[in-house]
């Protein structure tokens, strides 16, 4: 297993990632504190914004700059969906618009369903503490 750990923990890439990811989360926190939007609505806003910015090609610059700092937040999920749709359209035309997004996000969706079911099976809901 020849992994170059210096590359893995390369400081400037991790720092850019940390900063951009943190800033995107701050935007979310402002929405939580200053508006009456519920969590589900905030997630929808983020994923749709990511898809739109991804479609316009703008989000790509953020991804090139910050890597996971742009792809891990839910905007990145939207960007991934949009990018997948565009790639599929280039290959197969109109059908690709329907297949591309879901294909790109397939791993994440399947993982959420599968791990979600297992976690629910082995867990026990508990009372919330204040």
């Amino acid at each position: 297993m020849n992994i170059n750990w210096a590359n893995v923990f390369e400081i400037s890439s991790l720092l850019k990632c940390f900063l951009v990811g943190g800033i995107i989360c701050i935007i979310g926190q402002i929405l939580i504190d200053k508006t009456k939007l519920t969590p589900a609505r905030i997630l929808v806003i983020f994923v749709t914004t990511g898809a739109v910015l991804g479609g316009l090609g703008i989000y790509q610059y953020l991804v090139d700059f910050a890597g996971a700092g742009a792809t891990v937040p839910l905007t990145g999920f939207g960007y991934n969906l949009a990018k997948g749709a565009i790639e599929a359209v280039k290959e197969t035309g109109l059908v690709g618009a329907f297949t591309g997004g879901v294909k790109a996000a397939a791993g994440g969706i399947a993982a959420a369903i599968f791990f979600g079911y297992i976690a629910a099976l082995i867990s026990k809901p508990k009372m919330k503490k204040q």
Binding site: M1, I3, N4, N7, V8, F9, E10, S13, L14, C17, F18, L19, V20, G21, G22, I23, I24, C25, I26, G28, Q29, I30, I32, D33, K34, G67, A68, G69, T71, V72, P73
Partner: peptide, 29 residues
């Protein structure tokens, strides 16, 4: 709000950084 934004910043940044480390390991492989 200031305290909440600060906590959101560093926890969110940390989660993304963990993602970046995993990403880098995958690319190395």
């Amino acid at each position: 709000i200031l305290k909440n934004c600060f906590n959101a910043f560093w926890v969110g940044g940390l989660i993304c950084t963990i993602g970046q480390v995993i990403l880098n390991i995958c690319k190395e492989r």
